[in-house]
Structure formats: structure tokens, C-alpha cells
Design a protein around this nucleic acid. Structure first.
Lengths: 261, 261
DNA sequence: TCATTCGGACATGTCAGACAAGCTGATAAC
DNA sequence: GTTATCAGCTTGTCTGACATGTCCGAATGA
């Protein structure tokens, strides 16, 4: 197994530490820390320049970014203000540019929850057409395992088909979005090394379990299989999970409270 | 009972036509129109300045915004490029203005999944401080029930505190985002009518169940209580759920397969 | 001939200062 | 007391310059 942590996200190269990024994050944290009420006025650009020791261009760039993120509004002649609903306009998984390892683990965990729910619903609601679509993706991956090809696209289609079978359009959209962020993470499973080390076959076995449960309408089993699949996928990628993963402590009560890295 | 889901927020004021906004939109449209492939290089800032007849500051501000939106990436010394996955950078729940009833049901369902997971994790990982925060919100709602006041803010704080106790920051951010979309829907529970018909007391009883399970570290019970709470909340709001809700068919296997609308 | 090194050209990133445009509040005029 | 005006703040935009990172080709060396 590769001991290197592969972030599932397409890394835009080694991140150059840009000043505006740093300032934007500082201001963002500043708002979050003090839990500033919507409408609260931020310090003026001049003050921010002095406080961070940067030029006005950098401060303006940082604020411009916060504006685009929806957590700050500015009005000429008045100043900058905490937006009425910070973060309300849309949701994005990765804040900013740098992705910490703990963030990756968190995202895997979040995704696992939703995939579990999707599989449960799919088991209850799947139509014949849904089943056929899921089965087709499964079969494509099966061939990829046998022939050593890449089943990445089919892998994606498999998960999307399950989401669609849930009958919940919002759920489908969310998982599609998350899946896009994870597109890079499917490669290690299906590349040459993935076939050699058995990652592909292992993943496919989990896929079969999920499909089987959905096919026979066993919601509970489908959900658990989906969660197990996501957990295993995270492990295959070397993502360090929280000390208290749901999968290994759900049964036993009162585990010691762990800390995220 | 208000069966309309009111988007919480409001119109961002009459937007003064800022140059950088205009330029940003033009560039965005330019990318969309030509359907530029990811990685395609954009014109240099100098060229954009000439083309739009503005200064470099404006162009930089516009590009900065596109960067924040995730559809453009820049690299010093090289240029600006169309991002790998333009448009897939963020997720928003409610499409457009008109929200179909089925969409609301879908969102409730999606939220229930994540809240269930959050409660499970909170039961496993909650610190003493987490418990105190959750308890404080619970107590505030308790007083609201007794005195007939509005516990909407505390209601929000309760759910956010549980999300925070999960130790998963991405999860917390997602639920905060979803909660914002639902802020209007908490009102019918806590207004005069809500107290009179017992909706507030009912909701509070569910809250107590969730807290109790989290407090004693019972992940499974916490998760189920959270899901039951969300389902009940949807029912109180008159949201028409799918024919096959998870809550009533998860135990019994092989229910008749329903069809999603 | 081939590999290495170096420097110029060009990109974005940052800095500094200035003016334009918009808002607020106090002052002055009626 | 009401209105008009203005001074002083803010953000928005312009301009010019330098810093830093990247590419590419020429000069250099083996």
C-alpha cells in the first residue's frame, strides 16, 4: 500500500503562499472567532492594511474574495460589512486553497453519511430502470477488474446511479457535486498499481455487496455496505480517519473521546 | 400553517454597477460561450485591460472574484487558466426561486441523513464543553416552551452545537448552510400558534431525546432520535414526504417498492 | 553534438500614491 | 426648526513601478 497520502482532489500544484489568501483567511477566521453578527462593520481597508502590514491591493483582493464567497458585502462610501447570511448562498467543501489532511477525512466522513442514506433509500425505492442502470455500471467495473482497465468512469456512474435511485433529486445533486471533487481519488483504485495490489478487486467486491442489498430491498444492509465501502476507500487512500470512526465504535458505547488531528 | 418555504434572505440591495462586477460577468460569459476546456489560458491582464477599457486593478478584482468562484485559476509567471471543473465548485440546495414541494421534502430528507450522522458522531466524540453548549441551547428552548417565547434561535444553536460536537468541520459547515436555508421553517414551531397546538413542546421533547442519547454516548439512539426529529419536523410543517420514508420501512424488510415522484 | 547555465522577456503578485464617487454628520444659512 | 452646504470619512478606480515566478533560447562548457 502506498504510504503517501493522496488527496483526492486535484491539487493545483504546490501552493504558492499568496498574501491575499492569507489575509482573506485571517479575516474569515476573525469573523468566525468573534461570531460577528450580520451587518457588523469590518475595519476599514486602511486599518486592515496596517494590521496585516500589506498594501491596500492585497486587502482589497482578500475582501473581494470574501465578497465572492458571500460572507462580506461592501458599499462604497460606507465600508465592508459581515453579510446578512454568511455562507448562505452556496456550500463548498473546501474552504480556500490549502487542504488539510483532517479536512479530507472530514469530507470522506460526510460523504459516507450521505452515501449510506442514499443506498438505504435506493433499496426502498429503486425502480427496475434504476436497478438496470446500477447493474450496468457494476458490470462495466467487473470487466475493468478482469481486463485491468480503468473503471473510474463506471465507478462514478455507479454511485450516481444509486443516488438517482434514491428518488431524491437534492441528494443526487449533492452526491454528484461531491463526486466531482473526488474524481481524482478514484484513480489510485483503477490504475496499474491499483489492479496489482488488489485495490480494484477489493473495491469491486464492496460494490457488489451494495448492489446486492439494494436489489433485494434490504435498506439497512445497503446503507451499511455503502458506509463500509467509503470507509474502506478512505483507508485505501491512506486518509487518516478520526480516532472514533463510526464504523468501529457504533456498537460499543462510551468510547474515549478522540481528537481530530 | 405556512406551507411555503421562505428563502431567508433577501435581496442584496440594488447593486451599484461596479466595473469589476461587469468585467467578471463578461469574462465568465466568455468562458461559458466558447465552452473553453479546463486548462485553457485566458488573455493576459494587459490584454483584458485594453479589451474592456479599464485599469488593471479592475481586471484583477474581476479575476479575483472568478478565482473565488472556482472557475479560474492563476499562476504567477504563467497566466490565468480556466479551472478544472468550472461550475462544480460549489453546491446550492434550492435552485432558483420557485421551490417545488417535492424539493422541500428532498431537502428535509437529505438534512435528516446528515443530522443523523452528526448526532451519531457527537455521541462518540462530544467533549464536556460540547455537552455544555448543547445543554445551554436545550435549556433556552425549555424556557421558551414554558414561557411561550420564541426558541427559534436556540433551536438553531442546538443543531449547530451538535454538528460542532461531531468534530467534523465540513459537516458543521454543511449543516450550518442547510440550517440557514431552513431558518424560516423554524418559525411555525415557535410562534403563538406553535405553542398553542403543542408543536413547540413536541419538538422540545424530541430535542431532549437527542441530547440524552448524546450525553450518554449512545450513538445509535442519538442518530435515530435525530432522524425521528427531522421527520417529525417535516410532518409538522406539512411537508409531503416520499411514499417510502426511511423511518417507517427501515425495520421491515422487503417493503413494496414505491416510486419517487 | 549534447547538456548545463544563464539571462531576457513576459506573466502575475505586490506596493505606493492619487483622484473619483458615495455616505454621514455637523455646521451654516434661511 | 428646516434646509443647504461642506468637510471628512469610506470604498471604487486609475496609474506607474518594482518583486517574483516561469518559460525559452542563446551562450557556454564538456
Amino acid at each position: 500500500m502506498s504510504d503517501k497520502l493522496i488527496t483526492p482532489f486535484a491539487t493545483p500544484l504546490d501552493r504558492a503562499p499568496r498574501l491575499s489568501d492569507r489575509v482573506a483567511r485571517e479575516i474569515e477566521g476573525w469573523i468566525a472567532d468573534r461570531d460577528l453578527a450580520p451587518g457588523t462593520q469590518l475595519p476599514t481597508e486602511k486599518i486592515l492594511c496596517e494590521r496585516f502590514g500589506v498594501s491596500r491591493a492585497v486587502v482589497r483582493e482578500a475582501i473581494s474574495r470574501l465578497k465572492a464567497e458571500g460572507c462580506v458585502e461592501t458599499r462604497q462610501g460606507l465600508g465592508a460589512f459581515v453579510a446578512a447570511a454568511p455562507g448562505a448562498s452556496s456550500f463548498r467543501l473546501l474552504g480556500g486553497s490549502g487542504v488539510a489532511a483532517s479536512d479530507v477525512a472530514d469530507i470522506f466522513e460526510l460523504r459516507a453519511m450521505v452515501e449510506r442514506g442514499a443506498a438505504e433509500l435506493a433499496a426502498l425505492r429503486r425502480s427496475a430502470a434504476d436497478l438496470a442502470r446500477i447493474a450496468a455500471a457494476l458490470e462495466e467495473m467487473e470487466q475493468a477488474v478482469r481486463q485491468g482497465g480503468s473503471g473510474a468512469a463506471a465507478d462514478d456512474a455507479f454511485h450516481v446511479a444509486i443516488a438517482a435511485a434514491s428518488g431524491n433529486r437534492q441528494l443526487e445533486r449533492f452526491l454528484t457535486y461531491v463526486g466531482l471533487q473526488f474524481s481524482a481519488s478514484r484513480q489510485p483504485t483503477w490504475d496499474v498499481d491499483g489492479h496489482r495490489t488488489g485495490r480494484a478487486a477489493e473495491s469491486q467486491a464492496e460494490h457488489r455487496k451494495i448492489f446486492s442489498a439494494i436489489e433485494r430491498g434490504d435498506a439497512k444492509a445497503a446503507g451499511e455496505a455503502a458506509r463500509a465501502h467509503l470507509d474502506a476507500a478512505a483507508a485505501r487512500l491512506g486518509v487518516v480517519a478520526h480516532q472514533n470512526g463510526i464504523h468501529d465504535t457504533l456498537q460499543q458505547q462510551h468510547g474515549t473521546q478522540g481528537e481530530a488531528a
